[in-house]
Write a protein that binds this DNA or RNA. Structure first.
Length: 461
RNA sequence: GGCGCGGUGGCGGAGUGGCUACGCAGCGGCCUGCAAAGCCGUGAACGCCGGUUCGAUUCCGGCCCGCGCCUCCA
């Protein structure tokens, strides 16, 4: 089965045909590093990580570029508010981002360019746009002239008039057209800035993605992803900049993940329901967060709930339980099973792929011979890898404890093992009352015991 | 106002013009000292009203409800 992708540009599912099958290129808009990543930021990272893994399984080379935006007015504002130097903010936040995304099981992209390392490329694009008559200088700004481009608004399905009519911000007087947007803007002495043909200044937001995607993937490349909220204006403006500057098509397949709500409400700072990945990692393993995210198709809206996260964790308990029961079996083969591959090739249908994994887990639990177990375990591990799941040791999974439990409050692993030994002795002596008392005490502290053929194992509920 | 998305069983969530995933929860059974886990079995749904059709949850039209975007929020 060949990969098909829903292309926002044409609003249909299309067979994926890479420009060069030996080198597939994809670009995803990365974070602006001024604060911890929230759960909405995590969605595209996880979704496009699965796509990256799938593409790597299908094609010999995949170049995945995800930028870091380290020059932005929000960063400047943060620095003004806190007094922390800009460079310190961006470095610290980028590190936290990497740490969070790794915890969510996301592979690092092939290239992770920083905006501040590509100012020269941005200036060059702006200059080229001026030369070709698509942009103009005004009061130290360089602006893209929207009416100069024929089919501006195709991706977002907006025409210039409705953009202008819907504008919520007062239009600056130096703009030729109200829809024009900034490529370069002047900086004051206390703002970060770089020398340019238009004086000391800094880039607009959209230009960086055009510069960095062009540098690492070429003027025309295969896939560009991001959240639906970036369709307008960010991606629309990237298209305008890149196609007009290079006179060539830009992106062949545009992919956008759906929105995320929290407990039925839009996540916003004013509602106080802003959830950072950091916070959530204290409540559940990163892999459970990933599982919850992949349990809904990427284009559907997600309502993020505590209950949903718990359900994801329970599902992973079932998967890891099967692995723990077959810990001594070596997985055979590395081919992705057809059901999982077909699901993912159908526009990244991760819920269907997870359903197929449940079926495989059922077969693993039922398998009788070692050779059968080995084959089925191979199917499971290959499926898990492309989804970025089941990448840790089952014992480690079951021993995961929430931060709030803490060492002082909760039982240590050694304490638990000691109590299990005590209970074993009691059971041997047929003192079931004592044995059950130990089990009940542990259960009250969130530790569930399971007696199996190889002895007693435990997990944190 | 313009553009767009969603409404599936108790819950989460795929999908399909007829054979109605998958998981959790429930119920019955096997297993177990008893449990847990696992296995077997089982009930339960497609917002409303029309239309097309032999037949619609699936296609078309209208309506209701929820949500998003319309210059820098993934």
């Amino acid at each position: 089965m060949t990969l098909s992708i829903y292309n926002t540009l044409n609003r249909t599912k299309e067979p994926f045909q890479p420009l060069n099958p030996n080198r597939v290129g994809m670009y995803v808009c990365g974070p602006t590093v001024y604060d911890f990543a929230h759960i909405g930021n995590a969605r595209p990272v996880i979704v496009f990580d699965v796509l990256f893994r799938l593409l790597k399984a299908l094609y010999p080379t995949v170049v995945y570029v995800r930028n870091i935006t380290d020059v932005d007015d929000k960063i400047i504002k943060k620095s003004e508010e806190t007094g922390e130097p800009i460079r310190a903010i961006t470095e610290r936040t980028a590190r936290a981002f990497h740490d969070d995304m790794a915890a969510l099981g996301a592979l690092p992209p092939s290239v992770e360019p920083r905006a501040t390392d590509h100012i020269a490329e941005m200036i060059e694009i702006a200059q080229r746009l001026i030369e070709k008559g698509y942009a103009y200088e005004a009061e130290g700004h360089v602006l893209f002239n929207v009416p100069a481009m024929d089919d501006y608004g195709r991706l977002s399905n907006l025409d210039r008039d409705s953009i202008v009519a819907g504008a919520r911000v007062e239009v600056a007087g130096y703009k030729k057209d109200p829809a024009d947007f900034v490529l370069w803007k002047p900086s004051t002495d206390d703002q970060p800035g770089w020398e340019s043909p238009w004086g000391r200044g800094r880039p607009g937001w959209h230009i960086e993605c055009s510069a960095m995607s062009g540098k690492y993937l070429g003027v025309t490349f295969d896939i560009h992803g991001g959240g639906q909220d970036l369709i307008f204006p960010h991606h629309e403006n990237e298209i305008a900049q890149s196609t007009c500057a290079h006179g060539a098509p830009f992106v062949r397949y545009w992919m956008h993940n759906g929105y995320l709500m929290v407990e039925g409400e839009k996540m916003s700072k004013s509602l106080g329901n802003f959830i950072t990945v950091r916070e959530l990692r204290g409540e559940a393993p990163g892999e459970a967060i990933r599982m919850a995210m992949l349990s809904t198709h990427y284009r559907q809206p997600i309502d993020w709930t505590r209950k949903g996260l718990q359900q994801a964790k329970d599902a992973l308990d079932r998967f890891y339980g099967a692995l723990r029961a077959n810990a001594d079996i070596e997985a055979a083969g590395s081919e992705i099973p057809a059901a999982v591959k077909d699901a993912l090739c159908d526009d990244l249908n991760t819920p269907a792929a997870i359903a197929a994994m449940h079926e495989i887990v059922g077969r693993l639990n039922k398998a009788e011979s070692r050779s059968e177990k080995s084959l089925v375990k191979g199917d499971l591990m290959a499926s898990a890898e492309v989804l970025g799941l089941l990448q840790q040791d089952p014992e480690a999974w079951f021993k995961w404890a929430p931060e709030s439990t803490g060492e002082a409050v909760g039982l240590s692993d050694a304490d638990i093992d000691r109590l299990i030994e005590e209970r074993k002795a009691a059971r041997k002596a047929k003192d079931f009352a004592a044995a059950d008392r130990i089990r009940d005490d542990l259960k009250a502290q969130g530790i569930v015991l399971e007696d199996g053929p190889q002895g007693t194992s435990w997990k944190r509920g």
